[in-house]
Design a protein around this nucleic acid. Structure first.
Lengths: 343, 343
DNA sequence: GACTGGCACTTGGCATCAGAGAGTGCCAGC
DNA sequence: GCTGGCACTCTCTGATGCCAAGTGCCAGTC
């Protein structure tokens, strides 16, 4: 049936354009794909595809390139995810296994993802908001200085130094510590933050100054705005592959990469499964010729944070999707096996 | 005297080229600077400067541009550091004052430095190797898991989770902790690392497994290879200013920026005062048309780590040097005031 | 009715070329 | 030692013409 062949033609155009980065014409198409029809027929199909908005011609007599809509169709209905090779999988696994702590895992993932996809990779640090409190310590450092340490279920350790007016009573600190542990361990951080407020009330008035200082520090850690925003970016050198014209293609991306807020938003919308946003679908003028492939990661289905890639719209979607999925899986597993305190 | 005017001409060429990014000819030079002589005289001087290798002509009939040697002369003998404006200084100070911890200081400095210089900024995290041990804690997390925490004089807090074979004896841990504190606090990290080896010997044989595990973790922290390598990079979007030709000017820099080893080496050689490396002086083929301005930072003269900028050779050296110096000074002060435990 | 071969037409890219502009080097004179 | 003048060199720009690639359409065929 003709309709089906048209989609075959679209698929062929996307594949060829991704491979060559040049507008693909009817003849070139036939040389690389066995479609069993003549160039004239292909031309008719192309004209129809252009009418429907799946492809476009940069100028009257050049070949066609896929539009965002064309890529969308390709991703949704015309392609199958291309599984990674065994070697690639082993590479990811080995590379991540060498990590010494959570930060290292994030930094290594960014590298491996950039390497695999030849694009810019972005990995969000495990979110504090979405993890639970594993442990709280309040350690006297001698004198009026105290160290508060919070360990989360994602393996992250956050600490803060608190300076009190004077050296506090040892028993008071121990008491505070045990009450805080009791009230917060196991809770998600935002809830733990609320629980702290109640604890404060239970202390005698003359203990309040000390308790308030420490509780404030803990609250800051629990409701840490900053940490949730932390992001690692890698593979910026791959921007070289984006296209020849620096100002229109590369500079906006570099600028976006420095804007953490933008990155977070791009990654953030990927809640269930893998999200692919193509060109204008990113919702950013500056990124209108880039695509973002993102997904969550974390132990089991509970996403701790997100990771993904940013590349030109003309990327190899099946491979990129496979790479993002694989890295996400391995990162989740690594975090779970090595730094989760659950089991 | 003629010799002196020749140097004036060189200075004028550097200043003009930095401002316009175009080869500067004898006529244009006279329009912008009052040198009191005719174009022909300037041409003679230029010919002499070219013979001596300070300037070069891209092709027979274009103006001249400074060579690396020319910039070197300019920096060493022809320029005076251009102090920052009060507004700039206040901006740095305010921006850094808002930081909540050491990591935040580093990230903010990188931003402010990139902003000020309009170049790529690099800041090394405070070195562990060069700081001293302020405090050590060994905290039981319940069950066989222990948390070891090390706080350094630079305000950094490093921690590691240790998994023992079984829950250790409480007194043993307390004993170990106090001996470690006694032996290491105040020492530089490499020395502390050595001191740990001796401690191990003093424990009874059947306590050895537990002690060994914990001491190993501490040793890892003390002799942390990874942390000394940490670096923050910012302002990559400023690469847009480097030049028009992407492949020759920008890609190599992007690639170098991803290679931490290279960055560390570039920053690392800046021990005393401010180091300016121009073009080939960087010692890297790929960076032959970029300059690196770097310096150490830290409380007083004891450099904890380095920071600097990477830009094209044609930067405004007086301003860049001033900015690097100022940021270094403020970072050192901020670390000292807020996170040093010394006073 | 769908496919095919053929043909006229359009267009960007490339090489070629001439002219303009900028700048130099050198020489003779002050 | 400086200056004015002049011939020369080189790049840059815009115009021109040609070529290859590709399209759209039409008439013919299975």
């Amino acid at each position: 049936m003709a309709d089906e062949r048209r989609l075959d033609v679209l698929r062929a155009i996307v594949e060829d354009y991704v491979a060559t980065h040049e507008p693909v014409g009817s003849r070139a198409l036939l040389e690389r794909h066995q479609l069993g029809v003549s160039p004239a027929t292909i031309r008719n199909d192309m004209a129809a595809l252009e009418d429907e908005g799946y492809i476009a011609a940069p100028h009257t007599s050049a070949g066609r390139i896929p539009t965002d809509k064309g890529y969308r169709m390709f991703v949704d209905r015309l392609s199958t995810v291309k599984p990674l090779s065994g070697a690639e999988r082993r590479a990811i696994e080995q590379f991540l296994t060498g990590a010494v702590d959570v930060d290292d895992v994030v930094q290594r993932s960014v590298k491996v993802l950039a390497q695999l996809t030849q694009q810019v990779a972005i990995v969000q640090y495990p979110s504090l908001t979405r993890s639970t409190v594993r442990h709280v310590e309040i350690v006297p450092l001698g004198g009026p200085r105290m160290l508060v340490v919070v360990i989360t279920s994602s393996g992250r350790v956050e600490q803060r130094i608190v300076e009190l007016a004077a050296e506090p009573d040892e028993n008071l600190v121990a008491d505070l510590r045990s009450r805080v542990v009791g009230a917060t361990v196991g809770s998600r951080l935002p809830e733990a933050s609320l629980a702290l407020a109640d604890i404060l009330e239970t202390f005698a008035a003359n203990d309040r100054p000390v308790v308030t200082s420490i509780v404030t520090a803990l609250t800051q850690v629990f409701s840490n705005e900053r940490s949730d925003d932390r992001i690692a970016v890698g593979g910026t050198a791959n921007l070289a592959r984006f296209g020849a014209d620096f100002d229109s293609a590369i500079r906006p991306v570099l600028e976006a990469l420095e804007e953490q807020v933008v990155l977070l938003k791009l990654l953030g919308e990927a809640t269930a499964g893998i999200s692919v946003r193509i060109g204008h679908e990113t919702g950013h003028q500056a990124l209108s010729s880039t695509s973002v492939v993102a997904t969550g990661y974390g132990p089991a289905d509970d996403a701790l944070a997100n990771l993904g890639t940013v590349g030109p719209t003309r990327i190899d979607y099946p491979s990129t999707i496979a790479a993002v999925a694989a890295v996400s899986r391995y990162v989740g597993r690594t975090l779970n096996d090595n730094w989760s305190l659950d089991h």
